[in-house]
């Protein structure tokens, strides 16, 4: 087929226009004060200056610790989500349970529930169990958001597993748990990976739970610290954009590295709706 480079040119312009705010964030983070407050604006930050990254992130123990907190909370949430969602998705896809429709209901309804609605009761639960201001409380809270999404996304993957494979495993004396662990889970690995990526992305960016359930800077996630930063730094745009860029970085890396998997997984989920 004839290559349609004209469309490519238009597509490139649209994409560049859409991504301009992201470019502007990174460009600003690489400027010094005089370049930021110049009119007309300096469109290309050349030569780049990394001072803002030092002051806002590298020499800022609060920000570094918050990045660590978010990493712990996000990885913890991914593990918890997979542990709960994989057997649930399998059970509701393959085991011909009675009341499957009814059991799916909480997972579907949860999409409607605003995070802020859960904040007060969760705070109460966590304060009674001594979990307020712990990373564990935020892992538990974030899993409420990721779990329903994970079950809904995984179910179609389980539905596609050929039944003969399970039957063969069962007759070989694997038992149901053995068949699930040794036969089914390896087959749905792409689904598990998609869920892991999304649970990580959602948790890394989560803000409302962190804001309402933690008051101690030592355990707060980086989104809450960044918001606090916005209040403190006001119009110091270079450090603010440097910090924002660093918070965005893990998502961009995941996105670039696993782009095909994520887009494919999402599209599959979207069509299943």
């Amino acid at each position: 087929m004839r290559k349609r480079w004209g469309l490519t040119a238009v597509g490139a312009v649209i994409t560049a226009a859409y991504l301009f705010p992201v470019y502007w964030m990174v460009a600003t983070s690489l400027k010094d004060r005089t370049d930021i407050f110049s009119s007309p604006p300096k469109w290309v930050p050349w030569p780049p200056r990394f001072d803002a990254y030092h002051s806002a992130v590298l020499d800022n123990p609060v920000m570094l610790r918050a990045l660590g907190n978010s990493a712990i909370i996000a990885v913890g949430t991914v593990i918890m989500t997979l542990l709960l969602a994989a057997p649930a998705g399998y059970g509701m896809a393959r085991l011909k349970l009675r009341w499957t429709g009814l059991m799916m209901l909480p997972f579907l309804v949860s999409q409607l529930v605003p995070t802020i609605n859960l904040a007060v009761p969760l705070y109460l639960i966590f304060s009674r169990t001594g979990l307020v201001n712990t990373q564990l409380s935020l892992i538990i809270a974030n899993t409420i958001i990721t779990l329903p999404f994970a079950v809904i996304l995984l179910r179609p993957f389980f539905l596609r597993v050929p039944a003969e494979l399970e039957e063969a495993a069962a007759t070989d004396g694997c038992g149901r748990l053995g068949a699930f662990w040794r036969i089914v889970l390896p087959i749905v690995r792409p689904g598990l990976l998609t869920v892991a990526v999304f649970a990580f992305v959602m948790t890394w960016g989560e803000f409302a739970m962190g804001l309402t359930l933690t008051t101690d800077e030592r355990v707060q996630p980086v989104t809450v610290i960044l918001n606090q930063f916005i209040g403190q730094y006001g119009t110091e745009w270079a450090p603010l954009m440097a910090a924002s860029t660093i918070v965005a970085l893990p998502i961009v890396i995941l996105f670039v590295g696993l782009q095909r998997l994520v887009v494919g997984g999402l599209a599959a989920g979207a069509v299943k709706e």
Binding site: L19, V22, M25, T223, L226, S244, V247
Partner: peptide, 14 residues
């Protein structure tokens, strides 16, 4: 898809 994936606080900040 990038704008949709970035943390809301980052988008708000920029």
């Amino acid at each position: 898809l990038l704008g949709w994936m970035l943390p809301a606080v980052v988008n708000a900040s920029l």
